[in-house]
Design a protein around this nucleic acid. Structure first.
Lengths: 115, 115
DNA sequence: ACTGCGCATTCCTTGACCGGTATATAACCA
DNA sequence: TGGTTATATACCGGTCAAGGAATGCGCAGT
C-alpha cells in the first residue's frame, strides 16, 4: 500500500533530505548522494524506497538516472492532514477569541476553566 | 527533536489510528486500546511515543489519564508540506495549460491505445 | 570486444522497533 | 490498611530497516 510506504518512506531523515533536494529540480543519483553525504549504494536504496512509495520518478539519461519528485503522494499527505488542519484552525480561533476577549457571540459552550 | 520524532511517531499505523481516534475527542487509555485492538501496555507505549513527539497531551482524571491531540505538531507538518503543495499546484497548472493549449473542443486526439 | 562510468542489487552485521508478559506505581474504595 | 482499578515501565524475543563492502548490469567511448 502506497499509504503505508509513504509514511515509512518519509520517516527517514535522509529520505526527507532527498525529497527536499528534488524539490528544487530533478537530479541524477550521484548528485543526490554527494549533496546528502550518502554512499552510492545507500543513495540508490533510499531512492528505491522513495520510488516504491511513489514519491519519485526516474528518467534515464544515457548512463545517468535522473530522479524527480512526483507530486501525487504529496497530495495524499495533504488530504490526510486536512481534518487535523481544521482542528488547528479551531485552536487558533479559540486563541483569537481569548486574545480578543470581545466575544462576538461565542456562547456556544466550552468555558475552558483556568486552562 | 520533535521534528524527527514527529515523523517516526506517525510512521506507525497504530499510532496514526490513535491520532485519528483522538481527533474526534479526547479519550482515556483503555478506550483507545480497545478501539484500536491493542493491549494495554502496547497502547501506553504508543502513547508515550506520541507524547514524546508532542502530538498528544495528558490530563489526569482520577485513576484515568485522558489523552488529547495537540495541534501544534500538525501545524509543523503543514509547514513542511507547504513547498511541496506549491509543486503540486504547479503541476496542476501545467496540466491545465496542456488541456488549454491543445484545443478545448472534445475533438482532442486522445489516442486511447488498445481500447 | 574491451574498458570505464553510473547505478542497482545482494550479503552481512548491527541497531531499532514492536508485541507480549510480568511487574511497578498511583488513585480510589472499603 | 488492604484491595481493586487504571496506567506506566522493565525485560525479552522476534522482526525489520539502515549502512558498508562487494558485485552485477547497462551504456558509452575507443
Amino acid at each position: 500500500m502506497s499509504d503505508a510506504s509513504l509514511w515509512t518512506a518519509l520517516a527517514d531523515p535522509h529520505r526527507r533530505a532527498i525529497v527536499a533536494l528534488l524539490l528544487e529540480r530533478p537530479r541524477p543519483v550521484g548528485e543526490i548522494g554527494e549533496a546528502c553525504g550518502l554512499s552510492q549504494p545507500s543513495t540508490s536504496k533510499h531512492l528505491r524506497v522513495l520510488r516504491d512509495a511513489g514519491l519519485v520518478r526516474v528518467r534515464q539519461d544515457a548512463q545517468r538516472r535522473v530522479y524527480a519528485l512526483d507530486p501525487a503522494p504529496i497530495a495524499a499527505l495533504d488530504a490526510w492532514l486536512a481534518p487535523y488542519r481544521e482542528l488547528w484552525n479551531r485552536s487558533l480561533d479559540r486563541l483569537g477569541q481569548r486574545l480578543d476577549e470581545t466575544s462576538y457571540d461565542t456562547d456556544t459552550e466550552e468555558p475552558t476553566p483556568k486552562g
